[in-house]
Design a protein around this nucleic acid. Sequence first.
DNA 1: GAACTGATTTTCATCGATTCACGATTCACG
DNA 2: CGTGAATCGTGAATCGATGAAAATCAGTTC
Lengths: 334, 334
Amino acid sequence: MSSIRDVARAAGVSTATVSHVINNTRFVSEEVRARVLAAVERCGYYPNAHARSLASGRSHTLGLVISDIANPFFPELVKSIEDAAFEHGYDVVLSNTNYDPERTSRYVRRLIERKVAGVALMTSELDSALISEMARREVAVVFLDLGRPGPHMSNLCVDYEAGIEEAIRHLVGLGHRRIAFVGGPAHLRSAAKRSEAFRETVARLLPREPPRIFRGDFKLEGGREAARAWLAADERPTAVVAANDMMALGLVGELRAAGLEIPRDVSVVGFDDIAFASLVEPRLTTVCLPRQELGRHAVGALLATIAHPEQQGVEIKIPTYLVARGSTAPARGA
Amino acid sequence: MSSIRDVARAAGVSTATVSHVINNTRFVSEEVRARVLAAVERCGYYPNAHARSLASGRSHTLGLVISDIANPFFPELVKSIEDAAFEHGYDVVLSNTNYDPERTSRYVRRLIERKVAGVALMTSELDSALISEMARREVAVVFLDLGRPGPHMSNLCVDYEAGIEEAIRHLVGLGHRRIAFVGGPAHLRSAAKRSEAFRETVARLLPREPPRIFRGDFKLEGGREAARAWLAADERPTAVVAANDMMALGLVGELRAAGLEIPRDVSVVGFDDIAFASLVEPRLTTVCLPRQELGRHAVGALLATIAHPEQQGVEIKIPTYLVARGSTAPARGA
DNA sequence: GAACTGATTTTCATCGATTCACGATTCACG
DNA sequence: CGTGAATCGTGAATCGATGAAAATCAGTTC
């Protein structure tokens, strides 16, 4: 395949000039520029990205590390990140960790070897050794719900509290008092934050009510289990908030299978607002965690620290808000 | 950051020896090897992937081009490709075309510049110029449902006929005779193939029945529209096969909204078997297009032509099969 | 002790760009 | 018409690895 040298020879100029024409990195006279471009065309020349990155030290690649692309939360996030990256001329290397810390660190290592300009770490399978390794290499990093920002490192901080408070106020407004929560796996930071937000808000808004919490797994089955626990309870809650939509859907399915009607018998609120939340019957009332915004800010933060490495990383608050649909209704007898 | 030269100096050997130790590409005495590894550790050395690819001409990267990661068909495909690639030490650059041919060709160009070892083109926004460009560059390519295999190019050919025939036989077995089809956008190759398979199979199995075909868009709305068309029909079909699950779900939703019961009043069969097909009520009977298999074979074909570029690409048939669930039942009065 | 062997290791050209320091032209202006 | 500055190009070092060919060395053999 033809290299920059071939093009230079064909155009009768030096490789430096060809480089400048291609990258617009210095003024080149109209005449020479035209000759070079013609030669590029004639040779079918494609610059070699590896040679380019090696020489310039820059790579125009971002790493995107997520836990599981098959989890309906992620595709839209990936899409928005990919979109923003494409717009700015960056390619995205996708790393799917399958929730495996070992695999995560192998991936991060590879991304470093690749000299990616930045990494979006949208997962929590991270140990601190890995993080300090990235710090040492001065890779731009953006985390999701993890630690404080630092040099080269920004953090997206989802405002779980706001959405959950909105959800609870919504239910209280509908006359609900006995409100339960289906939490996620304890080792996931985002699950812990959601649970904490629920606990705190109920304590504040309904001080006489005890916290009613079911332990879940962020999957359909966790919701089903919670439904069975609900059915077995002495004093059944009249409303349930699930820490994510998958569990909310599992819950709804199992309750209906038991002959109950949603929202007549129980009101259900989910979290995330995955695509299918609005497609099932009844359409799920849920707290939206805006993925496009997440993605846009993630790329924005990366590009900012790539452009100004000396500046401190930032903390970006991502709002969440309630989307009221058909799975919530006034409490019976209220 | 430390380079191979620093490591060599630290270990008191040449760079070649370091390289050989790291890549296991030639015998190195135990003593020297240990010294090198210690130096690698001490320097915190990470090989530079660009320098490596430039020197060796190999890149250990695959490009994955898909239409829309937010379309529920793709995440599982991406996941299986990513899995297989990871296992073989390859990274995946994700290219989401948003069904835009212009964007597709820019992406493919970038992948070529990156000197990716292979590209999986799981989309149909491709013009022949692009394909011949890839052929000229001798990139390994695997297509989905596109053209014949050739040098460096393999093709995954989904056996739509088998699954659709199975679906129709299933319905006929349940006593259905008036069976309709909701097709996809005419410009998509895979949509055309599904429609053709339906038409052909009905003509063969139910020669007296006219083909009943609704035009759809592969999205929920297309299914809803088909439902309205169904409601308006003189002689309503007793069963509907949709070209994909999204339309099947839209159809079911709209029919139920109109007061009909599925499968009592109409049997519905989808296609693809996306995750939500088995999560909705009634659980959707559908033709499964096995994504894991697709992904595994895609990577397999790429690695094979990377390893043996002189061999002709292959054509791989991907089976499809019916998964009978709750959305189909005996025809009324049958 | 010279010549030969086999086992290891080193030297150095190379991959294909970028970019710096410098050289050649051109131009404005007093 | 000479001069300094601005403009436009070039040559060559450089990035960090790989890998073919040459070099080194210890141990045999004659």
